[in-house]
Amino acid sequence: MNLQQLEYFKVIAETENFTTASKLLLVTQPALSKSISKLEEELNVPLFEKRGRNVKLTRYGKIFLVHAERALLEIGKGIKELDEMASENIDKISISSTSRVGAYFMNFIISDFLNENPNTKFQFNQQSIMEIIDDLNNRKIDIGFYDNHTEAILDSSIECIPIKKEEYILIVPKNHVLADRKIISLKELENESFIAFCESSKDKILSYKDMLGYTPKISIEPKGANIGSAVEGLVSAGAGISIVPNSPTINTNLLSKISIKEPIKERVIYMSFLKSEYVSPIIKLFRDYILKHIDNN
């Protein structure tokens, strides 16, 4: 049984004539008769009985017509709903990122992309790394972005592409004794109070002890969605200094950025998406745009 047979059956029931039905359905009468015969064989009951040149529904046909019409109606609704969804999503991209990436990286990317593709609609939220991975697997988002100083998340169903590497720098308030320095050694910071930069216990970016080679004095360890802004605000207020990823959004009117002499493993921003998943042209365009325009050196 297939959708075509149900359509044929419904039209014949309405017209009560195979010839008329064949003209409306744009199919030959023999083909129409053969299709209905196969349907009756499958159901193992007669659906029509002859009444002169016309046909009438049998008692089986009358019962089956109720269900066939209901099925065709529901399928029609489903097709319409899918068409509407597809139409709405033609220029729609659903993305998610960790909070720090969202605060300074995604804003610029989305803005630049919209300048070239003004009809695009973005659905954008911020989550933890594992929430991003879960939403990708559950197809709630199209693309995820996260930052990590170790490795990409290992999930066989997800493609993770490193798209940008960032160096860590020291930030101090403008009135700090180190504010005029261009470069500094970590050994010179032993007596300083640090404002720790770690976004959460799950997404911890940086171990200050491992990096510095000694246990520093941590005066404040802010947490929350806007961790970057919180750290920079505390540093500019003179509450301590901090080692953070170099970002174009750091307010150099209030803060001084100082390069670090010792090599520190860069923080890497990854773009992730489901492997072997159909994507709309606009999503592919956005992914290609990122790979083409982001400097990951």
Rank of each mutant, 00 (worst) to 15 (best):
V27F: 05
L26S: 15
V177S: 14
S256C: 02
D134T: 13
E277V: 11
K62N: 08
D83T: 15
H176M: 06
N115H: 08
L6Q: 03
K187W: 14
H176L: 05
I264M: 07
I109W: 00
S219F: 05
I110T: 11
L24T: 06
N117I: 05
K77V: 03
N2T: 08
L57N: 04
L26V: 12
I36F: 00
I227Q: 05
S259R: 13
D288I: 05
T58F: 02
L39T: 01
E40P: 03
Q127G: 06
L43P: 01
D112R: 11
P173L: 04
R51C: 15
I283Y: 09
R51A: 12
N44S: 07
K204P: 02
L57F: 09
E266Q: 11
L206Q: 00
E131W: 12
L189C: 03
A13N: 06
I250E: 01
Q127V: 10
S201H: 14
I184L: 14
P222Y: 09
I93V: 14
L82W: 08
G76V: 04
E131Y: 11
A196K: 06
G76Q: 05
G61R: 02
L82C: 10
I205N: 01
A239K: 09
E232C: 13
S272R: 01
N17Y: 09
E199D: 12
Y146Q: 00
A152L: 08
L178R: 01
E192S: 10
S99F: 02
F122T: 01
K257T: 04
E192W: 05
K257I: 04
E262V: 07
E277W: 10
V172I: 05
T19K: 15
D210K: 11
N148T: 07
S247E: 05
L178C: 05
S111L: 13
D134V: 13
P281T: 11
F64D: 02
K165M: 11
A237L: 11
E131K: 12
L178A: 07
L72S: 04
K284D: 12
S35M: 04
S256L: 01
A13Y: 00
T150G: 02
A13R: 02
I283P: 00
N148Y: 05
